[in-house]
Amino acid sequence: MIPFNKPYLTGKEAQYIEEAVRSGKISGNGMFTQKCQRFFEEKYGFKKVLLTTSCTDALEMCAILANIQPGDEVIVPSYTFVSTAIAFIRQGAKIVFADSEPDNPNIDVTKLEALITPKTKAIVPVHYAGVACDMDVIMALAEKYNLLVIEDAAQAIDSYYKGRPLGSIGHMAAFSFHETKNIIAGEGGMLTLNDDQFINRAEIIWEKGTNRAEFFRGEVNKYGWVDTGSSFLPSEIIAAFLWAQIENLENIQKKRLEHWHYYYEHLQRWAKKNSIKLPIVPEYATKNAHMFYLVCESLEQRTRLIKHLKDNSILSVFHYISLHSSPYYEMKHDGRSLLNSDAFTDRLVRLPMFYELDVDLVASKIIEL
């Protein structure tokens, strides 16, 4: 069976984990944590980076930093993973779900302004498949209505919008290093901060509500409990694993992009013949080959494709079920139809994508259908 995903190991992960263990410091914010954070700050120009144990944790930190209160409204695309919404629900927010674009799963920016009310506090664009939302429109709305923009960049490492790294445009952003992502740490995530007003408090929230980070830098003579927070920082073992991946980021990206282009070039004629749509990358965006997906003509066609691939020992998967229709939130949703989000729920299928993939075999089996 060709799996949907296979974690790629560079060969240095175990070595760096052993180094972390032998250093005598395997709790958070040690040598490997700081190396990872410094790399992302220098390569992508983020003002401040804090590693977290997951992207969900990074989003929860964003919700705390945004000072979300019960009754505040947060605009979130319906076609996304549950973490995008639940981080703000835990702070008491009302989630206002936005529809996707007609031709790609990203948030439909033309319909955003109509969703903004005096209670709106933040917009959370999700860069689906590592392809940027139209951030100029989103940032202009945020400025007009005095809103925060929190980028859910879980899938968006090493991808750009008009030459700017994703995660560097909004006030803050969250990334994932889950084993299905381009670079991985098993679990793991990252908070990026692009507005100075959030940096000091973020470190406190990150360290269980204490000013411990300031203490270890010698900025205060003792530390204590000064704010809310949690144990959001990962262990050095996670950071050591991630550092081995970071060292190979360029190589990993090159290989994944080769797979992406192979799929695109070899499936075009077949897709057109079968009324299936390939991914669309707007002119303002780049792709990072996080995934390759197809949008089928119908649920039935998608079901046949998934079965055909499984019969040929290839695992493909559908993706999100629209959150506005989930058992948890359907009674809280305002009743608007989100037709594009529902269409992607029924029709989108993700093909295998990983470093060691035999992409030629997968593409050839698809074309047989």
Rank of each mutant, 00 (worst) to 15 (best):
I237N: 10
E41Q: 09
M353Q: 10
Q245R: 04
Y145T: 05
C55N: 13
R164K: 15
I246Q: 07
L338F: 13
Y320E: 14
M331A: 14
G71K: 07
S313T: 10
Q91W: 02
M139Y: 05
A343L: 10
S337I: 15
A174D: 10
S275M: 11
L148S: 03
I2N: 03
L305D: 08
G28C: 05
F177M: 03
L305H: 11
E179R: 00
R217S: 06
D358E: 06
A93T: 01
V281Q: 02
R201A: 01
I17R: 05
E300G: 08
I169M: 00
K47E: 14
N340I: 02
A363D: 00
L369A: 06
P102H: 08
R347H: 14
R350I: 08
E207M: 04
I366P: 01
P234V: 09
E18C: 02
Y128W: 11
L305R: 14
A185Y: 02
P3N: 08
N5W: 03
W260Q: 09
D152W: 08
I199T: 11
K222F: 15
S313I: 05
N106V: 12
S176C: 08
E330S: 15
A363S: 08
I306K: 12
H290D: 10
G45V: 14
P118G: 11
E13Y: 07
A289L: 07
A87V: 03
I75H: 12
A202M: 04
L315V: 12
V281K: 09
N5R: 04
T210L: 05
I238A: 14
D158R: 03
T345L: 03
D195R: 05
S159D: 04
E101P: 01
S364N: 15
K307Q: 14
L9S: 08
E42L: 11
Q268V: 09
E207P: 00
L191H: 06
G167V: 04
L278R: 12
F354S: 08
S364H: 11
K181V: 00
P77I: 06
Q197F: 09
G170W: 00
L242Y: 07
V74H: 01
K6P: 00
S168V: 00
K332R: 14
L65C: 01
F215K: 05
E219Y: 06
A271H: 07
T84F: 13
I184C: 03
N146Y: 03
L115Q: 03
V295Y: 02
L59Q: 11
D311F: 06
S298L: 04
S298Y: 10
L233A: 12
G209P: 00
I276Q: 11
G24C: 03
F39E: 04
I123V: 11
Y355N: 05
I86L: 12
V349F: 03
E368R: 13
T10W: 06
K208T: 02
V362S: 02
H261N: 13
H266F: 10
E151R: 06
P327D: 15
V295H: 06
T84M: 13
I276Y: 14
I280D: 04
G170V: 00
E207Y: 01
E187P: 03
R22V: 09
I252F: 12
H290N: 15
A98R: 04
E265Y: 13
V96S: 06
Y293S: 12
